[in-house]
């Protein structure tokens, strides 16, 4: 066995023993819940009298209240915390290379997310906005009891239904061209809404926002040096940037000089973007480490979940 493999194996073994010991002694990584029962009234309908139905929910309870009556460890949610910790460490193991734990959790991620997208697409749009318009009576009686009584069948919705079937035809071994029709609708609609909106918000409005006074006077009539410099820099900056993007004229002579200024301005912009990107990534890492140290290992307690324990 290679030295490196032995090292990692040993490290995992020690880590496992320490974790197991800590879980037994301290009880970390547990989720406590309380069973909450509420009563809901069901109105009388044809052939059925009004009745009261008992509803049960399990709500998370902080560990500090674990001795309170009715509070118990939730097996499913406790396993969940350990699975989540494994997933977090599995993804992090990518830092050491494409390890088997990484490949395993990555495969799970792909499967779960694709299925989740299908589920939300089905329930939130196909049921709620397609079937509810095609067969409102059936939907009201089954999946959507709250569907407004005003909703009546609208057969225009046969068009998106047909387009949907045509789109799914892509999965069939033959006749993939059939999917071009719904695709064309999709592309046409995107082009239609973006053409107007981009011109309005990102072209006309941006030019309008750049038309600024280069000499600014304050409310008392005095010359505002900083505001004047700021406005001048913004106006000239936008113009320099646009000159750089104007490739129809060779970037030589005066144009070349201006384009150079544009490049420098863009470098400042990209430098700022880099700084902000770093900020974002570190925040995400801090969030994951907090999960490991707090929810799983109980090493820290920033939200006082275990205060007094």
């Amino acid at each position: 066995m290679q030295r490196e493999t032995l090292f990692w194996l040993g490290l995992m073994l020690v880590g496992g023993v320490l974790l197991g010991g800590r879980a037994i002694l301290v009880g970390n990584g547990r989720q406590y819940v309380e069973r909450v029962t509420t009563t809901a009234d069901v109105a009388a309908t044809e052939g059925a009298a009004a009745q009261a139905v008992e509803l049960t929910d399990y709500v998370n309870i902080p560990a500090r209240e674990r001795d309170a009556p009715g509070v118990r460890v939730s097996f499913a949610r406790t396993v969940g915390i350990w699975v989540a910790a494994f997933c977090t460490l599995g993804i992090m193991s990518f830092l050491l290379g494409e390890t088997p734990p990484y490949k395993l959790v990555e495969s799970v991620f792909v499967g779960v997310s694709a299925a989740y997208w299908m589920v939300v697409g089905f329930w939130s749009e196909i049921v709620q906005n397609l079937l509810s318009h095609l067969v409102p009576g059936l939907m009201r009686a089954t999946l959507l009891p709250g569907l407004s009584e005003k909703t009546v069948p609208n057969y225009w919705y046969v068009v998106p239904l047909v387009l949907s079937v045509m789109m799914l035809w892509r999965l069939a071994p033959k006749g993939a061209w059939i999917a071009r029709w719904p695709l064309a609708f999709f592309i046409g609609a995107t082009a239609g809404i973006r053409l107007v909106s981009y011109l309005e918000a990102d072209f006309v409005q941006q030019i309008s926002s750049t038309i600024l006074p280069l000499v600014v006077f304050g409310a008392d009539g005095s010359f505002d040096v900083w505001a004047s410099i700021k406005n001048t820099l913004i106006v000239s900056g936008v113009l320099l940037g646009l000159v750089y993007f104007f490739f129809s004229v060779p970037h030589k002579g005066v144009v070349g000089g201006l384009a150079k200024g544009g490049v420098w301005l863009l470098m400042i912009t990209f430098g700022a973007s880099f700084g902000y990107t770093v900020m974002g990534r570190i925040a995400l890492l801090a969030d994951r480490l907090e999960f490991l140290f707090d929810d799983w290992l109980w090493l820290i307690d920033p939200t006082l979940q275990r205060a007094g324990m």
Partner: peptide, 28 residues
Amino acid sequence: WVLYASTPFHITTVAGCTGVQTPYLYPY
């Protein structure tokens, strides 16, 4: 939201966004 709501209909809009997006939204 800026493109399809705030600009054409003048609805007051504020936002909270990721570090990656922040510089791109300053022109608005």
